[in-house]
Each structure stands twice: as C-alpha cells, then as structure tokens.
C-alpha cells in the first residue's frame, strides 16, 4: 500500500477544514470567550457531533430514527458508571466505553433495522421509549429518577471544549469521507431504491447495520461527554423522547443528507433553544414544529438549501461581466 493523497478529498476543502478546526481551537484564547459562551460552544460541539451521526442514518441511508436518545443515554450512563467505578481512569476511555456499548446496543436492535420507511421510524419510537422506561427503573445502573452525580470537576468542564471540538472534527471528517466514498454511494443507492440496490449487489441489511452501529456509537460518545459536562445525568432526560426529536430537528433544520446541514442545524438549534428557553419556554416545541413544517414544504434541504438559493444570485452578481451596462 502506498501513501498518497486520497482522490476524494479536494486539497482546498481539507485546508479549509483544518483552518476552521484550528481557528475554533484557539478561539477561547484569542476571543477571550466568557465562561457562558465557552460552555455554550462546547454544548454546540456535542450537538453537532450527534446531528452529524444521526444524519448518517437519516440522511445517507434515508431511515428516520426517532430513537437515538437510547444510544445517547446509554453512552452517557455507561461513561458515568465507568468514571464512578474508576475515577483514576482517563475520562476519554470512559467515553469510548460508552460509545462501544451504545454501538453494540444499536447492533442488538438489528432486527428492527431490517424494517424500512415508516415501519423503521415507528419501531425506533418503540425501542427508544422502552429503553427510557427500562433504564429509568433500573436504579442500580442509572440511579432511577434521582439520576447519577459525578464528582464536579470544573477544569474538566473547561477542557471539554477541546474534546468536544475533537469529536466534532472527527465526525465531520468522517461524514465528508462517507459522503464522498463508495460507501456513501451505496448508502445513497439504498436510500433511492432498496430493491434496485440489491439487484446490483448492495446488501441493504449489512450497510444499515453498519451505519446504525457507527451512528449509535458516535451518539453514545457524545452522551459520555455530556455526562462529564453536566456532572449530573438523569434517565428521563438522557433517554427522553425530546432528545431523540432534537437529533431529527437539528438535522432537518440544517439540511438532511448534506454534510454541512447538520452542523448548521445543530448550531441554530442550540442558540434558538437557549433563547427560547430563556424568553418563551412555552413556545419552544411548537416553534420547532412550525419550522419543520415549513422546511418540509418549502425547502427540503433546510437552511443549507436556503443558503444555496441565496448564494446563486449572489454568485451570478459577483461573476457578472465587467462590461455590464450600468442602469
């Protein structure tokens, strides 16, 4: 095997990506972020990672999951348990353990994954809600409705910014590679027409399993980081239906099936949520519902689609012939 630049990664995109990550990495020092902003951005990193991973299933394979909270919660509680049992262990190992268990759980849900379309979506609601109930009452593991507390470590919370950034960068790069690779092609083929895909050799079951496992693992890791961030987690929140909805909303708002969309959507979601929860807590879900309706009806690619639409006339304007007659 020879080392050479992979054809599917345009060097300019790689450079821009690296520059973006570096900029975000130094931002806390350069901009002197307030603790409030610092923490908000950390949360956004975690949400972006989750949305990107949800999009592998919902956007690339075309299977809408309403149950990703199961993997998020599982990852969070496994990580928390590991940290409580072995406080001297480096936290990243605990997060990875959370991700592994979440990924295995997703694989264990394998039979539901052979379902397609609305059947799959409804089954994920069932799996998600069953998981919430079971884990809420499994007090030995999750602490029940009183939850679990981790030793508070404010330094850890501060450093989570970079861990979150790292996770997000990794998942974003993976999204890009999947989208551009032959794996991504096969996923899109499955999304377009499962039977036709099978007729040219693509095993939908295999790839759905693979992607759901990976997606679940990533969401599990972000659940682990979440646990470290808040130092307190509670099953009804971690496994809650609202959380599953969150992944759906972020991705759909940003632009389902694109790489950029979930990033944008998650950022908007976190900011909007912060603002709505502060100012109009009673309108919070309904506004997302309206947004969802508008996006599905008018702009299926969400904010990404909107940006593309806006940028087209802009680019045309920028590329206008120099000798264009002035009015």
């Amino acid at each position: 095997m020879s080392l050479r630049w992979p054809e599917i990664v345009p060097p300019r995109a790689a450079l821009a990506f690296a520059a973006g990550v570096v900029a975000l990495a130094v931002a806390p020092w350069v901009l002197g972020l307030s603790p409030y902003s610092h923490n908000l951005v950390t949360l956004a990193f975690l949400m972006v990672s989750g949305a990107l991973a949800w999009n592998w299933m919902g956007g690339f394979v075309g299977q809408v999951s309403f149950g990703h909270a199961a993997m998020f919660g599982l990852g969070g509680f496994v990580a928390a348990r590991v940290l409580l049992a072995a406080p001297e262990l480096p936290a990243p190992l605990a997060w990875i353990a959370g991700g592994l268990v979440a990924g295995l759980f997703a694989l264990g849900a394998h039979p539901t994954l052979r379902l397609r379309g609305p059947y799959f979506s409804i089954a994920t609601i069932g799996v998600g809600e069953a998981a919430r109930l079971v884990f809420t009452y499994w007090e030995d593991f999750t602490g029940g409705s009183s939850g679990l507390s981790l030793p508070i470590d404010s330094d850890m919370k501060y450093r989570l910014y970079w861990w979150g950034l790292g996770l997000m960068a990794l998942v974003a790069a993976a999204s890009f590679l999947i989208r551009r690779s032959t794996l991504g092609l096969q996923l899109l083929a499955i999304k377009a027409d499962v039977d036709a895909a099978a007729d040219v050799g693509v095993s939908a079951t295999f790839y759905q399993d693979l992607v759901f496992c990976l997606s679940g693992a990533v969401v599990g890791v972000s659940g682990g980081l979440w646990a470290s961030y808040f130092s307190f987690i509670e099953p009804n929140d971690m496994f809650g239906f609202d959380r599953s909805i969150g992944f759906v909303l972020m991705t759909v708002i940003g632009g389902v099936g694109t790489v950029f969309g979930p990033v944008l959507g998650a950022i908007v979601f976190v900011l909007l949520r912060q603002f709505l929860l502060a100012s109009y807590p009673q309108l919070y879900l309904g506004l997302y519902g309206l947004l969802l309706i508008f996006i599905i009806l008018f702009e299926p690619l969400g904010l990404t689609g909107l940006l593309l639409r806006l940028s087209r006339p802009l680019r045309r304007w920028a590329d206008r012939p120099a000798a264009a007659p002035s009015p």
Binding site: T182, L185, Q186, L188, A189, K191, A192, D193, A196, A197, V200, G201, V202
Partner: peptide, 13 residues
C-alpha cells in the same frame, strides 16, 4: 438511482 449521476449509478454496481 435518480439522485446519483450516470457514472455513480454504474460505479455502485
């Protein structure tokens, strides 16, 4: 596959 280009359609196969 309507969402893939002609070349991508064949590459999948």
């Amino acid at each position: 596959f309507p969402n893939l280009s002609v070349l991508e359609n064949v590459t999948v196969a």
